[in-house]
């Protein structure tokens, strides 16, 4: 068996003096054997001795990397204390849309920025040509902002467009259907539904007629039992509360702006950014929106943190 150190060390041992005398040795021309070997072929004796002292008979022996060095063998998320962030973002589903991240921002922010040329990338790639400082507008400059009276055309009212908010249908489903319906193929289920509707229609009509008759009878004979309905707040249905809000002149409860109204928050102050001397209708719309609560803020009365 060949020696292991020979595999890592010099492959060929130097020829002995006897072999050289007999003419055995490296396959070279007889005349060239007398010439000294080039310096690059053999390492200098000092270096070789140092290497042998450090690695013994082994070549290519390097220092092992230190055990304190941070590698992928350790869990880097726990090493940098990012478990909380990981659980926060990866534990539950993050909503896709930008409006879920910035719910208070007005306008349609879920549309791609390339549509209306409002992308942040274009702002970086082509920064606007402007000065380095902001100076307040003088009286003469403000004359350039005199506007014509009247409403804007519909296509220009981008500020009022809000993304449609999803209603929570889960509760309705639970209350309506208690037994789970087995899954069906769409074609089969469509046909069955249509047939069922046709079959049920005359029956429903009969039932309705019977109910009406009963009601009439009850009214004549005594007080009717209260019909069970879904529980609402003290204000009744949403439509009722909206109507009441309109009558009160409250824009947000009426579902007109989607903002918090002046009735629910403090009134607009003339000095504040939400204030100003404006006509009554606009003044009502300028209710200052409540500041988003931050972790450091004191808790509101009666409402704990979410």
């Amino acid at each position: 068996m060949e020696n292991f150190s020979a595999l890592f060390g010099g492959a060929e041992p130097p020829p002995t003096a006897a072999a050289a005398a007999l003419g055995f040795g490296p396959a070279k021309a007889p005349g060239a054997g007398a010439a000294p070997p080039p310096a690059a072929a053999a390492p200098p004796p000092g270096e070789d001795a140092a290497r042998k002292a450090a690695g013994g008979p082994f070549y290519l022996l390097r220092e092992l990397p230190g055990t304190t060095e941070l590698t992928g063998s350790t869990n880097l998320i726990t090493h940098y204390n990012l478990e909380h962030a990981y659980n926060k973002f990866c534990g539950k589903k993050v909503k896709e849309k930008l409006s879920n991240f910035l719910p208070d921002l007005p306008g349609m922010i879920d549309l791609p920025g390339s549509h209306d040329n409002s992308s942040l990338r274009s702002l970086i790639e082509k920064p606007p040509i402007c000065g380095s400082s902001f100076t307040p507008l003088t009286g003469t400059m403000l004359t350039g902002f005199r506007l014509h009276a009247g409403p804007l055309p519909e296509q220009c009212r981008l500020m009022h467009i809000q993304p449609p908010k999803k209603k929570n249908k889960h509760k309705h489903k639970q209350s309506r259907t208690q037994d789970p319906v087995p899954p069906e193929t769409p074609s089969d289920s469509d046909h069955k539904k249509k047939k069922k509707k046709k079959e049920e229609d005359p029956e429903r009509k009969r039932k309705k007629k019977e109910k009406k008759k009963k009601k009439v009878g009850e009214e004549s004979w005594g007080p009717a039992q209260p019909v069970p309905t879904r529980e609402r707040g003290p204000g009744g249905s949403r439509a009722q509360s909206q109507r009441a809000a309109v009558s009160r002149g409250c824009c947000c409860h009426a579902g007109l702006t989607g903002r918090v109204c002046a009735s629910s928050t403090e009134p607009a102050q003339p000095g504040a950014p939400g204030g100003g001397q404006l006509p009554g209708q606009q003044q009502q719309q300028f209710a200052v929106r409540p500041r988003r609560r931050r972790p450091g803020d004191p808790p509101a009365d009666g409402n704990g943190p979410d």
């Binding site: 973002f89 896709e96 849309k97 922010i109 879920d110 791609p112 920025g113 942040l120």
Partner: peptide
């Protein structure tokens, strides 16, 4: 953000 997606994603 330009694509109208949540940056938390």
């Amino acid at each position: 953000i330009d694509q109208g997606r949540n940056p938390q994603l």
